[in-house]
Simulated assay, not measured.
Amino acid sequence: MDQNELLARIDRLESTEAIRQLAGKYSLSLDMRDLDAHVGLFAPDIRVGKGKTGRAELKAWVDDTLRHQFTGTSHHIGQHIIEFIDADHAIGVVYSKNEHETGAEWVIMQMLYWDDYERIDGQWYFRRRLPCYWYATDLNKPPIGDMKMRWPGREPYHGTFHDLFPSWKEFWNHMPERDVLPEVAEPQPLDGFLKGMRRDTPAPRIRVR
């Protein structure tokens, strides 16, 4: 192994850890309502939506959301898969189990984030976070059945937890033949697992709660 290859591998390890730290810092800063620390995790020109960009716009949006919908929150992150596009760009999936105090109800949620990361001036940031929800429901009301997004005071609706990956529908739409071994695809390359699972499908449209 030559020196350039060694330095590249070290850089990849350091970048992986820096990106993992982003997810933890996101949860802590959000739950503790340190909005300056929170928006500082995102690229300076982060797109907020409807023609709005930048950390100030993001801070205003997060402030309004937290102040008017939740008394308190707790985000518990799980597995984090990271793949590099190149030395300064990566994608990732982060599981998150969340609790929300909202009015007189305690709402629990299971979701995942589809992330895009970018290194700018030597620092890793979120370029985009796409939240994909499986369920949200009162702590004492298991979300059995369809329309698992059940926020207080709103009509239930469908989350996008499974829409990110076409394998979910393919699994349920295909019944294998009995007593016949299925075909098995070749394993995805190391930095192609997530892209392979997505299969170039477009990102789902996320309903804002």
Rank of each mutant, 00 (worst) to 15 (best):
N4P: 04
N4E: 14
L6Q: 09
A8F: 04
A18V: 07
A18Q: 07
I19L: 12
R20A: 01
S27T: 06
S27L: 01
L28C: 02
D31I: 05
M32Q: 15
D36Y: 02
D36I: 11
A37L: 00
H38F: 13
V39S: 05
G40Y: 09
L41Y: 01
A43L: 08
P44C: 14
K50H: 15
T53V: 15
T53Q: 15
R55H: 01
R55Y: 09
R55C: 03
A56W: 07
V62P: 15
D63P: 13
D64E: 15
R67K: 15
H68K: 13
G78Q: 06
H80R: 04
E83K: 04
F84S: 13
D86R: 12
A87H: 08
D88H: 03
A90K: 06
I91M: 14
G92R: 06
V93W: 04
Y95D: 10
Y95C: 02
H100Q: 00
G103V: 01
G103F: 06
A104M: 11
V107H: 00
M111H: 00
L112F: 01
Y113W: 08
Y117K: 12
Y117N: 05
E118L: 03
Q123C: 04
R127M: 03
R127H: 09
R128Y: 00
L130D: 00
A136P: 02
T137L: 01
D138F: 09
P143R: 12
M147I: 11
M147P: 10
M149E: 02
G153A: 11
P156I: 10
H162R: 08
D163M: 02
F165V: 14
P166E: 00
F171N: 13
H174P: 06
D179N: 12
P187N: 07
Q188T: 02
L190C: 02
L194G: 01
R198Q: 07
D200I: 09
P202F: 10
R207P: 05
